[in-house]
Design a binder for these strands. Sequence first.
DNA 1: CCTACCGATCGGTAGG
DNA 2: CCTACCGATCGGTAGG
Lengths: 208, 208
Amino acid sequence: MSNPGRPQPRSQPRGQARKEHILAVALKIFAENGYRGASIAEIAEGCGLSQPGLLHHFPTKADLLTAVLEYRDRLDAEKFHVDDPTPGTAALRHYVNIVEHNAHLPGLVKLFAIVTSEAAVNPAHPARDWAVGRYEKLIGGLAANLRLGVEDGSIRADVDTTAVARLVFSMMDGLQLQWLLNPDRVDMPGLFRTFIDELTTEITTPDR
Amino acid sequence: MSNPGRPQPRSQPRGQARKEHILAVALKIFAENGYRGASIAEIAEGCGLSQPGLLHHFPTKADLLTAVLEYRDRLDAEKFHVDDPTPGTAALRHYVNIVEHNAHLPGLVKLFAIVTSEAAVNPAHPARDWAVGRYEKLIGGLAANLRLGVEDGSIRADVDTTAVARLVFSMMDGLQLQWLLNPDRVDMPGLFRTFIDELTTEITTPDR
DNA sequence: CCTACCGATCGGTAGG
DNA sequence: CCTACCGATCGGTAGG
């Protein structure tokens, strides 16, 4: 972004690319095994590194998981502009697009599913704060967009925007589990779209 | 039930009570740590047994998890009569009651949440078949009850009963995660009831 | 002094 | 149901 022509070709290039490779490998192994089930030895092997070589970049296993989650959150925020205001029911349609996109990324869906569940059942989980904060951001952001719709009159004034936002992300998370267990028979994006369409009808101000 | 006065006071009493105690202790530890994160040594200690003593009753860790899940399924089936036909939208209200009941049993909610997620992300998980079969039974059962409602005219004929059933259990599972992460601020039964009420209105045959 | 690692091993615990 | 163990593997760190 703020990088002109081709200046310092090695400010952080080597180490940064190596770190991103580690994060990609770690994502996959954490995604299929969870935090405790994943071993840093297996992640290191997948990177062509020794275990201490891996721990040079991320001092502990918990640090590595946290880095993977923050990295993915940052990529998604850039890709989906989640912080941009999207007033009214357009915000709901935005999440239909995200679910359709996720249907091509089972690894990412698995990571968020397993880590969220682990954090939910274990208060001492290293990603507990991440999981709690993620729902706060997602729900707060969608609720704020829905409130913009209430203010411009497109959404009924009696709608509990936080409750609606909670239902939206509950449906998203629940459908992911059924889809991961049975990808051939569960049309995750189609079911989510059906839900969002009905929800949109329900909360939209009647035309007369 | 079929036991008169006080006959055979030791047909299965000692071993059965011991086994049920083990299952209760194992449920709690599997629920908070998942399958791999739970250790049979910790479960044995919680039972006042040695590790080999525990393995006398359940030969492997996978056998113990399976026994816990089957035990809970059996108790719930007896309590909630899940196999009884409940035509139409009464079947939906039935699940509102179950969610209200579950709100007092966080340990049970945790067990199902973590095991389902683990099975969803890992095809080799010992509870994979349990998780797939559980959704098949839940969705098949609810869809069958909704079809009875279509047949008696109380539910609109164009409703995709399997899709509706999938949405219901997705919402149930997703709300559980948010509730476990934030029990004070997430009114799981209230949000689920809201969803079911709107869904009921949506699929019910119009009065005219 | 920095980075990016290595081979070997630490104390404990896994399922059986 | 016990004590006594096994092959292997866990996350993390030593010196170089």
